Simulated assay, not measured.
Amino acid sequence: MTLDFWFFCIAGPAVLFAGVSKGGFGSGAAFASASILALVIEPGMALGIMLPLLMLIDVSTLKPYWGKWGATEVKLLVAGGIPGVIMGALLYKVASPDFFRLLIGGISVGFVFWQMGRHAGMIGTAKQGLPKSVGLFWGVVTGFTSFVSHAGGPPAAVYLLSRNLSKTQYQATTVLVFWTLNAVKFVPYAFLGIFTIETMTADLLLAPFAVAGAWIGVKAHRFISQRLFFGVTYTLLLLTGTKLIWDGLT
């Protein structure tokens, strides 16, 4: 990996985008930053660069959303997410990420169309809340996909968008969930040798982009309406789901 001008032309905007997504729009598209980096460097190195930056964004956005999350949703996603991270660490060397990209991408795109049908009155809505097992299941999927490709945002969104949270509850929940899961991921990443001197050097140079993106995301979240927020979130979920399908096929 060469930390030259062209690297930062790609990496700088990618990290800025991750900060904006995680800071204001529920992390749905933040995973795309690792995919963008993988255009210019080896994919495993891209994961190693992004994790410390994602953790920096988590820390930068935790205070503005402190205490505003959905407690039940956080507990279920984290309770399922930690085993998912462990599963990802155990299967990292042998599992094919493309299968999971296709699976999560298909579910994400299908969920958006399901929600469109529900709002249009074409699909009935359950009168009772979803069982806790649903939250635990999506927590496992979130933890696993977060570990293997930083793509935990779409499966988390599938569950959280079904919970009728306010835009700030939704955003705060994603901040706390991924702050926890990214911290858990750090140890197995280190043992697997994903971090190197090169990745840490790149992190130091890219840190300002991460902080700036987080700040922009928090500001954008405060000034947009709840309807626009969820419109953007559904759009990001559709785009990221499509991108996952494309990555899995190609």
Results as ranks from 00 to 15, higher is better:
Met1Lys: 08
Leu3Ile: 08
Leu3Ala: 07
Asp4Val: 07
Phe8Gln: 11
Ile10His: 05
Pro13Tyr: 08
Leu16Met: 13
Ala18Lys: 11
Gly19Ser: 05
Ser21Cys: 14
Ser21Leu: 05
Gly23Leu: 11
Gly26Val: 02
Gly26Cys: 07
Gly28Val: 15
Ala29Ile: 12
Ala30His: 06
Ala30Arg: 10
Ala32Cys: 09
Ala32Arg: 00
Ala34Ile: 10
Leu37His: 08
Leu37Ser: 06
Ala38Pro: 13
Val40Glu: 01
Ile41Cys: 11
Ile41Leu: 15
Ala46Pro: 01
Gly48Val: 06
Ile49Leu: 13
Ile49Pro: 06
Leu51Asn: 01
Pro52Gln: 14
Met55Gln: 10
Leu56Ser: 14
Val59Asp: 02
Leu62Met: 13
Leu62Gln: 07
Lys63Asp: 01
Pro64Met: 07
Tyr65Cys: 04
Tyr65Met: 06
Tyr65Arg: 03
Gly70Met: 02
Lys75Met: 12
Ala79Cys: 10
Ala79Phe: 11
Gly80Lys: 05
Pro83Arg: 08
Ile86Phe: 13
Ala89Glu: 00
Leu91Ile: 02
Leu91Tyr: 05
Leu91Phe: 14
Tyr92Val: 01
Val94Cys: 04
Ser96Pro: 01
Ser96Phe: 00
Asp98His: 13
Phe99Cys: 02
Phe99Ser: 09
Phe100Lys: 01
Leu102Arg: 09
Leu102Asn: 04
Leu103Met: 15
Gly106Phe: 05
Ile107Asp: 03
Val109His: 13
Phe113Pro: 02
Trp114Met: 12
Met116Gln: 13
Gly117Phe: 04
Gly117Asp: 05
Arg118Pro: 00
His119Glu: 15
Ile123Lys: 04
Gly124Cys: 02
Gly129Phe: 01
Pro131Trp: 13
Ser133Asp: 04
Leu136Phe: 13
Phe137Cys: 13
Gly139Lys: 03
Gly139His: 06
Val140Gly: 04
Val140Cys: 11
Val141Ser: 00
Thr142Tyr: 08
Thr145His: 07
Phe147Asp: 03
Gly152Glu: 07
Pro155Lys: 11
Tyr159His: 10
Ser162Ala: 15
Leu165Cys: 09
Ser166Ile: 05
Lys167Glu: 06
Tyr170Asp: 05
Ala172Gly: 05
Val175Ile: 11
Val175Glu: 08
Leu176Asp: 03
Phe178Glu: 09
Phe178Arg: 06
Asn182Tyr: 09
Val187Trp: 14
Pro188Phe: 00
Pro188Gly: 04
Tyr189Trp: 10
Leu192Gly: 09
Leu192Tyr: 03
Thr196Cys: 07
Ile197Ser: 14
Ile197Glu: 13
Asp203Thr: 14
Leu205Asp: 01
Leu206Asp: 09
Leu206Tyr: 09
Ala212Glu: 02
Gly213Leu: 10
Ala214Tyr: 08
Trp215Gln: 11
Val218Ile: 15
Val218Gly: 06
Lys219Val: 13
Lys219Pro: 02
His221Ser: 07
Ser225Glu: 10
Gln226Met: 03
Leu228Val: 14
Phe229Cys: 06
Gly231Phe: 09
Thr233Ala: 15
Thr233Lys: 00
Tyr234Ser: 10
Leu239Arg: 00
Gly241Tyr: 12
Thr242Tyr: 08
Trp246Gly: 03
Gly248Asn: 09
Leu249Trp: 10
